[in-house]
């Protein structure tokens, strides 16, 4: 997902009877569906895990602009270019909502951002894949944003108020992202044979990385169980992945495109699609920094940050000069 394999720092999940009075009151609030707000007491582990999760999520939004930015100057029509620009601008906005939510937990945006630039905190594995043909732009909207929505809709109900409110805003806008993507792929799938082949090529390359977004099976994971107890994770990775597959297969069928999985088939008994084994070694390699674009993505972000430094400093110096003048004028008057 946009935040993958978030470490809670916990060895095992505690029961109510093992908790301190404060911890128990906190857990009972969560169990009762009462939102935790920035100034409320919270266990240190909850605070740290949320900072990790929200900042990873924010970084994914920001780095996620890069594969799409790759096609802005080459969009085939002005309409598609305007839509793509609007979507990329939204991703920046989503990153900002999320950084603000993280800041309510006692870190600053620049601190959190420095952890992205140093490689200490990751962003979603999916953004380390290249967008090599125009149909990729549609496929990213359809599959990647589609997968993100699967995760973000339940997160609107998460226990931390500022995070859940950010998710509500994000979800309202995310639906546009998925639909414009599907619309783009549809135009190509119903176009010339060459266009349809491009759409199929994009689906072939993005399908498996999209399924990996949800992360490895977490049925046995302490971190996942702890996050669920804290209600900052609502559904398991496998549940979300299954929902995504069930939703997406008919969409691909409608387009006349083939999902690149020979084991994919409808299971009458379970009422779900069965699908093939995911190459988790590839996932581990991408997360470890060895995906097709990891170095390029980080280098681009670091360069943007460094190139913008004089500008950030100049604006602040200008603001300080103006406010000093105002004070001087007020004193003189």
């Amino acid at each position: 997902m946009y935040a993958q394999m978030v470490d809670t720092g916990m060895k095992r999940v505690q029961g109510l009877d093992e908790m301190s009075a404060e911890e128990r009151a906190f857990q009972e609030k969560i169990d009762a569906g009462i939102k935790i707000e920035a100034k409320d007491w919270m266990p240190e582990g909850y605070r740290r895990t949320l900072i990790r999760q929200i900042s990873q999520h924010a970084h994914s939004e920001i780095v996620g602009q890069l594969p799409e930015g790759n096609w802005v100057t080459r969009a085939p029509t002005l309409k598609r270019k305007a839509i793509l620009l609007a979507k990329i601008q939204d991703e920046a906005g989503h990153g900002l909502y999320l950084y603000s939510a993280a800041e309510t937990l006692g870190v600053t945006r620049d601190q959190v951002y420095a952890d992205l630039l140093s490689g200490k905190v990751k962003y979603s594995s999916i953004f380390n894949y290249p967008t090599t043909n125009w149909a990729d732009i549609g496929t990213v909207g359809w599959l990647v944003d589609g997968a993100a929505i699967m995760n973000q809709i339940p997160l609107c109900r998460c226990s931390y108020g500022p995070y859940s409110r950010a998710m509500v805003r994000v979800c309202k806008e995310e639906s546009f992202h998925q639909r414009q993507g599907y619309d783009l792929v549809m135009a190509m799938a119903k176009g010339t044979p060459e266009q349809k082949a491009m759409a199929q090529d994009a689906l072939n390359r993005w399908w498996w990385p999209a399924l990996m977004m949800f992360g490895p099976s977490d049925g046995e994971s302490v971190h996942s169980a702890q996050s669920m107890q804290w209600k900052i994770k609502i559904l398991s990775n496998d549940e979300l992945r299954q929902k995504f597959v069930d939703q997406t297969v008919p969409q691909a069928e409608y387009l006349g495109l083939t999902i690149p999985d020979p084991d994919l088939k409808w299971n009458e008994d379970t009422g779900h699609y069965d699908f093939g084994e995911i190459d988790w070694e590839e996932f581990r390699q991408v997360v470890a920094g060895n995906g097709p674009c990891n170095r390029d993505r980080l280098r681009t972000r670091v360069k943007a940050w460094e190139d913008g430094e004089w500008f950030r400093d100049a604006l602040l110096a200008h603001a300080e000069k103006k406010s000093e003048r105002q004070v001087a004028t007020a004193k003189a008057a």
Binding site: Y97, S100, R109, R165, R169, R312, L316, H318, A319, K322
Partner: peptide, 11 residues
């Protein structure tokens, strides 16, 4: 609606 960073009120 939320918060943001800026060098001054106008920005």
């Amino acid at each position: 609606v939320g918060s943001l960073h800026a060098p001054d009120a106008e920005m």
